[in-house]
Design a protein around this nucleic acid. Structure first.
Lengths: 194, 194
DNA sequence: GCCATTAGGTCAGGTATGTTGACATATTTC
DNA sequence: GAAATATGTCAACATACCTGACCTAATGGC
């Protein structure tokens, strides 16, 4: 990003302290412009790293989301994915088909319910998903190292709070369950006694 | 979001503690899946509030971004906006034209350089921009109230750290400068002695 | 066993937002 | 006067969404 020089009304002043001038809390309805804009820029760079890798494979952000959640929730149903991503079946169908055709995702018929097409990542799919997660983790790690102890918990609480109240518990459960799911998958890969 | 029940490998276990099981720090390259996913869900809900309002006006997220930055940086050049949004002139042209045609943004010829078309929000544009910012601020306010003192600064440091290092200083300057710009605009609207 | 429901897939067509590339016009700068 | 700059525009295209309609196969209630 080049310098953005506002020419019309710009006059020399205390501009550019480097750290956005802080702690003038938006008491009477003053918008939190700083956090609004930081969230915009932070999110863009956060998804930017994976985007570059994906573009080389002919994939986009939509493929990333599908691959990510399937990797995190092996054996999930198509309907679960639709629910998490909040997109339509048709939209999911297109990207899912590409991921399957190119061997990153596989479907298995449900054992109890044979209508279901349970979703799993292939070894290549897991490798890609983990590569993308590693890129994002690297960015996060750098930040948390700068923030020191408590930074992770603070970030987590802020972000969790930003989630729509109605969905928040579901999301937190999803994250917790996925953690234990992946752990269980690994255990049963080492040793067939989950 | 409905319940997402993973049927294939799911067995009863310590799932769903409500608060994602914490503080098992990703030491040896363990991805920060929790923060990755929280960022995804938080951002989606963060932009979701404005999206609803915008949809009723026939606008999309692209219009929001343009309107937001013009509101925050009155008198900015088209080139500045291209630089912030990192999109092409043609993409910007389409949404900018709509915002101008519908009276939310106005252009004025630059005084020093008459090639420039400096961008300003109209009163209607400012009202809309502030309405959208208020929605996002309401969400943020609720979170910060839950987090207690220091929450805002922690969130700001986390988000600022997530921005690409190369751009970070520019963004922080942009935010700081916009704060003082808006303040100055208001002062000169009250009293013609900036 | 019949039938409604469910899980999933697919066709057809439309919108929003982005892209490249090529030009055009006015203005400033050297 | 020529080169560079700020902006706008035309044309064509790609992606990622959407709505609506319709299909198959399997399940489950009765």
């Amino acid at each position: 990003m080049a310098d953005v020089s506002i020419t019309a009304t710009s006059k020399p002043r205390a501009a550019a302290s480097g750290q956005a001038s802080s702690e003038a809390a938006p008491t009477a309805g003053e918008p939190y412009f700083d956090l609004i804009e930081l969230l915009f820029f932070a999110y863009r760079d956060f998804v930017g790293d994976p985007d570059e890798v994906l573009a080389k494979l002919g994939f986009g952000r939509a493929h990333h989301r599908v691959l990510h959640f399937v990797n995190r929730n092996p054996g999930m149903k198509v309907a679960d994915l639709l629910d998490i991503l909040k997109i339509t079946k048709q939209s999911l169908g297109r990207v899912l088909k590409q991921l399957i055709d190119e061997g990153y995702v596989v479907q298995k018929e449900g054992a109890r319910d044979r209508r279901q097409r349970l979703l799993y990542v292939s070894p290549a799919g897991e490798a890609l998903a983990m590569k993308l997660a590693a890129l994002q983790t690297a960015r996060i790690s750098r930040v948390l190292a700068e923030l020191g102890p408590g930074g992770r918990e603070a970030a987590r609480r802020f972000l969790a709070g930003m989630i729509e109240a109605e969905d928040r518990d579901h999301v937190l459960r999803l994250i917790a369950r996925a953690d234990s799911l992946v752990e269980r998958e690994r255990a049963s890969a080492r040793d067939d006694n989950p």
